[in-house]
């Protein structure tokens, strides 16, 4: 396959960025999209050029580190997958592919396609935990959790923190990410003791980080690699009202 890549290059946050063109031959349909970028980077090294910085780690769709805009869509042309799960067979010989970093003020660019998503860590820091110390837990079966509740908690807990929801949202809202974590913990009996505090503090931090508001377009759930539903956002909003009324 022969592909023309148009890729965002930006040396650092201080430098101005621009799209650069790269024609790459010798790609195969079996290659993953990231392997095609690996291949391009090897060619760049041999041409004495700096490699394109892009993120990845597990390359099996679970760590959440990879993620770029491909032809205007977060994680590429398919619904509900990560960038590392995209293969070149999704493109045609001769295609032009535009590759850009996540676009959101709260995810500033570090270099090329790499952005800073530490805002997510700071939201987690504000209460996405159960305040029990190691060694203090009761017997695991002492508190039964009905399967339906456990399954719903798991649906929300599956979030990989890739940031596609933010990147694809016209408001750059982090509501899907934040709501998934809140609903995971607040729906379990173990998370009940801190439920109101958790909602209040995590949503406060979400706004303090500069993420936009949710206007319920549903764009996020289309890209979410774990297919996390926007019902979570509605549930978070309901919990938020409840926490305002009942929380201490």
């Amino acid at each position: 396959m022969k592909i023309t890549f148009k890729i965002w290059r930006q040396n650092s946050p201080k430098h101005k960025g621009a799209i650069k063109n790269y024609e790459v031959e010798g790609l195969t349909e079996d290659m993953s999209f990231l392997e095609a970028l690996d291949h391009l980077n090897e060619l760049l090294v041999l041409k004495n050029e700096k490699v394109i910085a892009f993120e990845y780690d597990c390359r099996e769709g679970i760590c959440g580190q990879c993620g770029v805009f491909i032809n205007g869509r977060a994680h590429g042309p398919h619904d509900n997958i990560t960038t590392c799960q995209l293969h070149m067979r999704s493109f045609n010989d001769g295609d032009t592919i535009v590759v850009e970093p996540w676009r959101a003020t709260s995810f500033p660019i570090i270099k090329d396609l790499v952005v800073d998503r530490s805002a997510f860590d700071r939201i987690i820091e504000q209460g996405a935990y159960i305040s029990s110390k190691t060694g203090t837990a009761p017997e695991a079966n002492a508190i039964p959790v009905p399967k339906a509740i456990s399954d719903r908690a798991m649906d929300a807990a599956a979030c990989i923190g890739c940031g596609a929801c933010v990147a694809t949202c016209k408001n750059a809202s982090a509501a899907l990410f934040t709501s998934a974590k809140i609903n995971h913990l607040n729906s379990l009996p173990q998370g009940k003791a801190e439920e109101h505090k958790r909602v209040a503090e995590m949503t406060y931090q979400m706004e303090a980080e500069g993420f936009g508001n949710c206007t319920f377009t549903g764009a996020c759930e289309v890209e979410c690699p774990e297919s996390i539903s926007i019902i979570n956002i509605a549930e978070m909003n309901a919990r938020r009202i409840k926490s305002n009324l009942l929380g201490s």
Binding site: K147, D151, A157, H184, L188
Partner: peptide, 9 residues
Amino acid sequence: VQQGVPFAR
């Protein structure tokens, strides 16, 4: 379980 891991039930 106490930390909120949603194990299969």
